[in-house]
């Protein structure tokens, strides 16, 4: 009969027992989940059971990780994600969350650029931790991405990106993410990238400060190859700060727009 072991199909003999299977396939496993429920007692396996054997703290092998992502994503989707390269310019509240969302789904390659270091004031919204204060954001974020998937390919550029360097640093990306802070920098990056690579889509963000309704944030196609996520008006300023919930909504609009573009859908 067929069952799923760690997301992969396995054929076992009728009457096979759970602990027997563990001892054969994963002798070191100290945690078992059957059909979504942890720590079951030993029992006879049934057709179609979903069994997960875990050794606490141990990283799954690369092929097991692949199988896990393939099983979670719709058929055909993971292959496209795995083949993709995405550039992210700016690793603040937007860029760090976009990178984590795309890292979790196993994007083939991420190219990350930021000149900044992690400051205590970043922690209210950016994907960094207290023990990373003072680290370059590129290095801190790469370390976090490696913790959630050690098989990701991450290229980092700890430098300011200008009109001259954008084409070189982000050569070969399938989608480019603008995640900078200042309006002037956003405009300059979008312009420099799209004049260098007119056929590569850019996903930018504008208008995400404060705590206005999340539903006012949307993803809009504004040019042939430019998509902007945000409410287009809420500017970061005094009395309207940047906060994790709304910045996160915009960042995940961006990440989802990237995913849809990679899969051939209009965001």
């Amino acid at each position: 009969m067929k069952i799923l072991v760690n997301e992969r199909p396995v054929v076992v003999g009728k009457g096979t027992r759970l602990y027997e299977l563990r001892d054969t396939l994963y002798p070191g496993a100290d945690c078992i989940v059957v059909n979504g429920f942890p720590s079951p007692v030993d029992r006879t396996l049934r057709e179609g059971d979903r069994v997960v054997f875990i050794k606490r703290g141990e990283c799954p092998a690369p092929e097991e990780f692949e199988a896990l992502l393939t099983a979670r994503h719709t058929p055909g989707v993971h292959e496209k994600i795995r083949a993709a390269t995405v550039g992210i310019c700016g690793l603040g509240g937007l860029g760090s969350s976009v990178a984590v969302a795309l890292g979790r789904i196993g994007i083939g390659r991420l190219i990350l650029a930021d000149f900044d270091v992690v400051e205590p004031s970043n922690l209210n919204r950016q994907y960094y931790f207290v023990d990373q204060i003072g680290m370059p954001k590129t290095e801190a974020l790469k370390a976090t991405l490696m913790r959630l998937n050690p098989y990701l390919k991450v290229v980092t550029h700890a430098q300011r990106v200008d009109e001259a360097s954008v084409a070189t640093l982000f050569e070969g990306v399938d989608v480019m993410v603008e995640a900078l802070d200042r309006a002037e920098e956003k405009a300059r990056l979008v312009e420099a990238f799209l004049t260098s690579y007119p056929t590569v889509p850019v996903v930018a963000a504008s208008g995400l400060a404060g705590f206005g309704p999340a539903n006012e944030i949307e993803t809009r196609k504004v040019m042939k190859n430019l998509y902007v996520c945000g409410d287009f008006t809420s500017e970061a300023m005094e009395h309207q700060g940047l906060m994790a919930p709304r910045v996160g909504v915009a960042a995940h609009h961006q990440a989802n727009a990237v995913l849809r573009l990679l899969l051939g859908y209009r965001p």
Binding site: T195, S206, G207, A209, T233, A236, L242
Partner: peptide, 30 residues
């Protein structure tokens, strides 16, 4: 007309009758 214009070309780039122009105004925050 589906072509992004660089800032240093704003003066030289002509606008004519029938042109389709998209202008995105960015606000700060990221």
């Amino acid at each position: 007309n589906s072509c992004v214009i660089k800032k240093d070309e704003y003066d030289q780039t002509a606008i004519s009758h029938g042109d389709v122009v998209e202008i995105v105004r960015f606000v700060g925050g990221g």
